[in-house]
Nucleic acid binder design. Structure first.
Lengths: 339, 339
DNA sequence: CCATGTTTTGTAATCGTTGCCAGAACTATT
DNA sequence: AATAGTTCTGGCAACGATTACAAAACATGG
């Protein structure tokens, strides 16, 4: 392993000169600079970033915590985070929790041990140390930004969309299309996000003067399979819905399969609205009407917030609410029979 | 920032004792050990991993390079890599190249500067320094494992499936179903992987005594959209295929859309085979027959190879070829008309 | 050619740990 | 109580860079 000292000796200069050649070339005379650069090239020297880091307060590394990497919605956000982070000079480390607290804590620990500067959380889990603080305990501080989910009582930079309004928008759209028996396949109700979308669903139904039937609500877990199962349960009930709001596109795609298997037509028999606007939804049969979240804006905002937190710059807003958008496609194209 | 020295002073012991309490508790007497642990808890001390790393030859960090995180096939492999790596005590850093050499080199640089120990490449791009070495140049060494793609002339641990045989298998299946005008939507032909699948396609056609028509080959880029476009081009030709082998499921899903839009039935008019066995393929309309790659085995093997490389343990095999598998679903369910 | 001011350069301290080594503190044995 | 043999502990030198500070080299003007 060739070190800065080897270069210095070989080039006949001091280590300081080598260091300067690399970090502030203008400060060293051209003759020596050339000599040093040449030696560096000859000896294949690359400065040890670990050693360099030791003197710096920061690391330029941000960990992004995702419940599941394979979920295209999350990987989409990760992609945009990676993008912006790269431009701001940050490295991104991705951690997958799969709902396990232990894994999350492992990554949180990397911040405590200064392997990374901060945590961007996309999921609904909080590190144990953060939760301890929520409950009034004294605990070490972790720079944190929450994207996607909100946590009541936790004062920490947060970028979200208004899931209540978005859920309501989806249902209003179904109502406007003439649906009268509107069911929903919700996400796991442990997530605030799922709760919010469900609340939007309920509020919109009530506002439209439609009944909110207990039997019209099925809980899924955001996976295709759970959407498939939930839809089957809905189809087995006495009252079959003519419209379903799915809390994400994956579950909607699963639901579509169940509907097709029953020989029902979409949207003629059942209209569907999803959430997230996955690429796969646009190519489903029929293409899925959905609520689009501003994925890249979410990622961008989250990184910029983290950047501000790490530099102790004040944030204009601690909580940013971005705008969602209804994307109309064929799964709700034809109006149902108007009463 | 509280350091080991602060703890030592506060607990009335030497830094060495604190260090030992953490790394080899047995070696310090219970009375002092307790005192130290208590002080650590009181002062919220977490050892600085950067400083610790400085003394170690390795970092326990592996970078996984992916062309696109949002591609579910890659994120599936990343997931399995993350899994196994975690168990072996490695951290995983994910880098996305989006086909840009500059981004890949940025991550390769992290290995040279010892921020990470090695690189697992899932894509078809090689770091500049590695390519330089391929061309006979003298260049620094980077621990490398190639997953998914092979590179001729590069002697480096490699885990793949036999894409030629797999491509042929897909086509044989179409032939067995009675298809006679079999087209293919290939991946980018710059990738060895795409070349191999295409070669399998050609060989299987020839073996079946069917013509390999230039016009039956369309190049895509593995995206849904490109599959959609490629299928449209195929449908506009004089001879419309009765079977299509798509080099991945995403393109197959795009192709399905194009076929539906023409009002053609699957598999009655056109049978389809995809590749990768994405969850979304199983829920497509109709569910997609596909070639399943052993995703988790690929990930597991890649990490274990990297582990061996980093510990300079000899590998049983430098090149591991894993087995693929045909998954039959409805997109090829009914035989076409037999001649 | 000297005094002075401005670049450049080198020396050495520093970052927070680990781990070697020598010495201190125990325990056991006579 | 003295000795030998163990276990524990503390001091200090690494690890490989950066950087403050001082010294050296150079430039400028009189």
């Amino acid at each position: 392993m060739v070190t800065i000292r080897d270069i210095a000796k070989s080039a006949g200069v001091s280590v300081a000169t080598v260091s300067r050649t690399l970090s502030d070339p203008e400060a060293v005379r051209p003759i020596k600079r050339e000599k040093v650069l040449q030696t560096i090239a000859e000896m294949n020297y690359a400065p040890n970033a670990i050693a360099r880091q030791l003197r710096r307060p920061r690391n330029e590394t941000i960990i992004v915590i995702v419940p599941a990497i394979a979920n295209p919605f999350f990987s989409g956000i990760v992609q945009s985070i990676e993008n912006v982070a790269h431009d701001l000079g940050y490295r991104i480390l991705i951690g997958e929790t799969r709902g396990e607290q232990e894994r999350l804590d492992y990554y949180a620990d990397m911040v405590l041990t200064r392997m990374a500067d901060g945590l961007i959380l996309l999921g609904s889990l909080l590190p144990t140390v953060v939760r301890a603080k929520l409950e009034g305990g004294r605990a070490p501080h972790i720079p944190l930004v929450l994207a996607c989910e909100r946590f009541d009582g936790l004062d920490c930079p947060n970028v979200v969309i208004d899931n209540v309004v978005a859920g309501a928008l989806a249902v209003q759209h179904l109502v406007a299309r003439g649906c009268r028996r509107i069911a929903t396949i919700s996400g796991p109700l442990a997530n605030t996000l799922s709760q919010d979308r469900l609340r939007g669903y309920c509020e919109a139904l009530r506002a439209a003067g439609l009944a909110v039937a207990e039997t019209g609500i099925e809980e899924g877990d955001f996976s295709i399979d759970s959407g498939y199962g939930a839809m089957q349960r809905l189809l087995n009930k006495a009252i079959v819905p003519d419209g379903v709001f799915c809390a994400n596109d994956e579950m909607a795609i699963g639901a579509q399969q169940a509907i097709r298997e029953r020989g029902l037509a979409m949207p003629a028999d059942i209209a569907l609205v999803g959430f997230d606007d996955l690429r796969f939804g646009a190519f489903a049969a029929p293409p899925l009407t959905t609520i689009r979240q501003p994925t890249s804006q979410i990622g961008e905002t989250a990184v910029k917030m983290m950047d501000a937190v790490l530099h102790k710059r004040p944030l204009e807003q601690r909580k940013v609410v971005l705008l969602h958008e209804l994307v109309e496609r064929e799964s709700t194209a034809r109006a149902c029979v108007q009463i």
